[in-house]
């Protein structure tokens, strides 16, 4: 077996070690890489930038701690933009951890942007995933009918404690939908909420889910998309709030370079093996 052929059978533990080292080292420098935002990230930014301030933004937070690496960074970047523009927003989700995680980030940022709970933002909380279609359909007709109360069990009809709910009644009062999810729940949002009034929908999937969404961008059912950590990185650049994604950008690029090199190396080994087999057959 030649050296080239051995490249095809590198011990996977060496690959893991290389990945640990390269990502670990790439996380240390603080200087961010220059970023050119993609069209879909720019469209997402423009949708929120142009949203009327007297309309509500709904954040569908259907993610959990396991995809925090991507969805967390996307959410924080979007929250910065919403609060900079003083857009009122509501958080809801069909994963029990989603609304809690987003609300925790919103509370941190609320102090900086002077956002008041119940006046500028609200957490409608978690709803069981099995009821997603029914809940969304009810919510479109009226928030009180669909959600009834917030995550602290305050009825949405209590306009003293939740004054913003006096202004926003149903889908007609929604300016933008932001759906952050690593799963297929976005289909319910498109079919049962976006499609009713053509409300602009910004989609923030994990990079795994992104390819499934391109046809919705093409058809206009989604106005913009943040593709995983890269999307978050682009959005942080657009809102000029470098954060977690910007800090991890170099590590992401380095890991991609390593994977590309490994693919090239593996294929060189494959070609060498193929050539040897061919020449052996020729001799035989």
């Amino acid at each position: 077996m030649s050296i080239l052929e051995k490249l095809q059978t590198i011990d996977r533990r060496i690959v893991y070690l290389l990945l640990f080292l390269s990502v670990g080292l790439a996380l240390i420098p603080r200087k961010p890489l220059p970023v050119i935002p993609s069209n879909q990230a720019r469209s997402a930014f423009e949708a929120i930038e142009n949203a009327p301030t007297d309309k509500l933004v709904i954040i569908g937070a259907d993610w959990s701690a396991s995809t925090r690496g991507e969805n967390g960074a996307q959410t924080i970047a979007i929250l910065h933009h919403l609060m900079k523009r003083r857009l009122p927003f509501a958080i809801m989700g069909f994963d029990p951890q989603g609304p809690e995680l987003v609300a925790a980030e919103a509370e941190k940022l609320a102090k900086r942007y002077n956002y008041q709970y119940g006046t500028d933002w609200i957490n409608w909380g978690f709803r069981p995933p099995g009821t997603i279609n029914a809940t969304l359909k009810a919510m479109v007709r009226g928030f009180q009918e669909g959600m009834k109360q917030d995550s602290k069990n305050i009825p949405l009809s209590d306009h003293v404690r939740l004054p913003m709910m006096a202004r926003f009644k149903d889908i007609n009062d929604v300016g933008v939908l932001v759906v952050v999810t690593p799963s297929q729940t976005f289909e319910s949002w498109v079919a049962f909420v976006q499609g009713i009034k053509g409300t602009p929908l910004v989609f923030c999937p994990t990079a795994v889910m992104a390819p499934e969404a391109y046809q919705y961008l093409d058809s206009g059912q989604m106005v913009g998309m943040l593709t995983g950590l890269k999307g978050a990185l682009e959005y942080e650049g657009l809102v000029k709030e470098p954060g977690r994604a910007t800090a991890q950008g170099l590590a992401l690029s380095v890991s991609h370079i390593l994977i590309i090199l490994l693919i090239v190396v593996g294929n060189l080994g494959y070609l060498a093996q193929k050539r040897r087999q061919k020449s052996q057959q020729g001799v035989g």
Binding site: V23, G69, L229, Q248, L252, S255, H256
Partner: peptide, 10 residues
Amino acid sequence: IMARMALFIS
């Protein structure tokens, strides 16, 4: 791969 790397990097 990008998604997996993002989770690992996190």
